[in-house]
């Protein structure tokens, strides 16, 4: 039925979690995602991991981009992923982390289920490309 073929759009949640007031990066990426044709939901600042899980589940996002510049990624990111698992949402949500993540912390985050980590200097195009290639098929 051709009337059922209407546009599927990649849905992203851009999330700021924990005590970290720097959201310039999150704003820039939200805008870039929008311009790439994605639907972006921005969480706002200072959200708890549970809040992020709630938003990701309810909005049924394909992509969850977590921006962390506070250094608390080792505690916050696993909490979010555990929460997603609780709602059976972990498998088909592409979890990305952006921010200042030291090299030695990366393997562990990847083990937790983070698909990619984008550090300082990553180009916007690279991130968009990655999302397009890896957003889960529904």
């Amino acid at each position: 039925m051709s009337s059922e073929q209407e546009g599927e759009s990649i849905r992203c949640l851009v999330a700021k979690v924990g005590l970290d007031g720097h959201d310039r990066g999150a704003h820039v990426i939200s805008r870039a995602f929008r311009d790439a044709g994605f639907e972006v939901i921005y969480s706002g600042l200072h959200k708890a991991p549970d809040d992020i899980v709630q938003a990701a589940v309810q909005e049924d996002v394909d992509v969850l981009g977590i921006s962390i510049l506070s250094g608390a990624h080792n505690t916050l990111v696993p909490k979010i992923i555990d929460g997603l698992e609780e709602y059976d949402a972990a498998d088909d949500t592409l979890v990305l982390v952006g921010g200042v993540i030291p090299e030695e912390d990366r393997p562990e985050l990847k083990d937790e289920g983070v698909a990619a980590i984008f550090g300082p200097g990553t180009s916007i195009e690279e991130t968009i490309e990655f999302v397009r290639d890896n957003a889960p098929e529904r």
Partner: peptide, 10 residues
Amino acid sequence: SGGAVLGDRI
């Protein structure tokens, strides 16, 4: 672009 920033949640 067809894209959108959905901000009401904030």
